[in-house]
Design a binder for these strands. Structure first.
Length: 421
DNA sequence: TCTGGGGTCCTAGGACCC
DNA sequence: TCTGGGGTCCTAGGACCC
């Protein structure tokens, strides 16, 4: 039996917490470059604004003057997410955070009546202490828990935000009402393909022979099918294990043609990537840098390339990683193109303790580690990027546009001026 | 004018080996 | 006409998620 707790309209709920005037309005939160809609209030959903909608296309769905558009403040959202998860963790077992606003878990209590009472109280407590509305769904598998959570959110008869999807007859009825494209693990491509075979609902899908699903599609989709039948197939890997890759990338506020500007951005991305490696107690074995043009500008020649370089010794040292990221940039840089996006990725990640010292590496790892710890400590105390490598000193030409911060909200500006997450 | 960022897993196919 | 067979390993790319 799995529980899934999910914050309702999470980013919008966070913004509303600090500006109640947003209540009852069509509110959307925009992605990094004020580009796409990444969160919607119920009112915005009802107006037909789809998830991922480019901001400039909102007018195709509703009167944009009635839509409040806000730049994302991911640091604030992370902070509130941590508070929600702390309260949840006190009442459940095996809490596995799946994303910033949702987590799977198992129950402490065996009997459903006690559990239901505890969970309904938890929903109330999160609302009271953190201010964020959440919903909880229960089912025999994670995929079904997703379905149950959806019902907990949507069905007005569910007054306490908790829904149990357990009885086979109930599961059968619900699956018949679940469009195939709403199933977790069935995206646009797969649902189009399944629909062309006459599979319209989750119930239709469950009736397909599993061997056929596997041969036509993949073991992944077959697992989704078995999960819908109520078998736990561990579809979601626990996110608690360390990351296998860590990436930092941004779309620039405008196209960039200067190599120095891009190098400046790459150093910033490398710094952030290295910091995250250290936070997770990991080291990277190789570093990848990529650059690309603007895929929407047909008037400009398009260029996209990446380069992955191994590190002599796996490390989380900012300077080594930045240096290697710049080496990679030098190998893929081409003059005469307009660049719109770039990024740095750490790969071949291992636990930090597993450092294989390179005999010929002149660096003193102990000294470097102490330096990095000091830098992280200062940045923790005085704000991110108080100390940084020279090339990234100021917000550059490449910084993403974010022009819709809610300056009228009571939120500490602490959460605003910081450069993205 | 304006189209995100950060992940995971699986598969097909090529390189290489005996 | 006919071009072994069976492995392993790696990578690129596609699909999905939020």
């Amino acid at each position: 039996m799995y529980g899934l707790v999910d914050c309702n309209n999470f980013f919008v709920s966070c913004e509303r917490l600090f500006d109640p005037r947003l209540n009852g309005k069509k509110v959307v939160v925009l992605s990094n470059n004020d580009g796409c809609v990444i969160a919607r209030s119920n009112e915005a959903k009802a107006a037909g604004i789809p998830m991922g909608c480019p901001a400039f296309k909102i007018k195709e769905h509703t009167d944009p003057r009635q839509v409040i558009q806000l730049s994302a403040r991911h640091i604030l959202y992370r902070d509130l997410s941590n508070r929600v998860m702390k309260l949840v963790g006190e009442e459940v077992d095996n809490l596995q955070q799946y994303s910033v606003d949702e987590a799977f878990f198992t129950l402490k209590h065996k009997d459903v009546d006690t559990s239901h009472r505890v969970m309904a109280e938890l929903v109330k407590r999160i609302r009271q202490y953190v201010g964020i509305p959440v919903s909880i769904g229960f089912a025999p598998s994670r995929t079904l828990a997703k379905v149950a959570n959806h019902i907990a959110k949507k069905d007005p008869r569910i007054t306490d935000g908790v829904y149990w999807l357990i009885r086979p007859e109930a599961i059968d009825i619900i699956l018949r009402r679940t469009p195939i494209e709403d199933v977790w693990g069935v995206g646009r491509r797969l649902s189009a393909s399944l629909q062309s075979r006459g599979i319209k609902t989750a119930a239709d899908f469950v009736k397909m022979p599993p061997s056929l699903v596997r041969s036509l599609y993949s073991v992944t989709l077959e697992r989704t099918q078995r999960e819908l039948m109520g078998h736990d197939c561990q579809i979601a890997n626990p996110v608690t294990i360390a990351h296998k890759t860590i990436m930092t990338s941004r779309t620039f506020g405008k196209v960039i043609t200067s190599r120095d500007e891009i190098a400046d951005a790459i150093v910033s991305f490398a710094e952030r990537t290295a910091r995250q490696l250290r936070d997770e107690g990991s080291v990277a074995g190789s570093i990848m840098t990529f650059v690309r043009g603007d895929r929407f500008r047909e008037d400009l020649p398009f260029y996209s390339n990446s380069c992955q370089l191994a590190l002599d010794t796996p490390t989380s040292d900012t300077m080594t990683i930045a240096r290697q990221a710049l080496n990679a940039l030098n190998l893929i840089w081409r003059d005469g193109f307009a660049y719109r996006k770039a990024g740095v990725m750490a790969l071949d990640i291992q636990r930090g303790t597993a450092i294989q010292l390179n005999l010929f590496d002149p660096d003193d790892h102990g000294k470097l580690r102490r330096l990095m710890t000091s830098i992280d400590g200062i940045n923790n105390m005085y704000g991110r990027r108080s100390i940084k490598l020279a090339p990234g000193l100021q917000r550059g030409e490449w910084s993403p546009n974010q022009n819709h911060f809610n300056t009228k909200s009571k939120t500490l500006h602490f959460y605003t001026g910081m450069l993205t997450t």
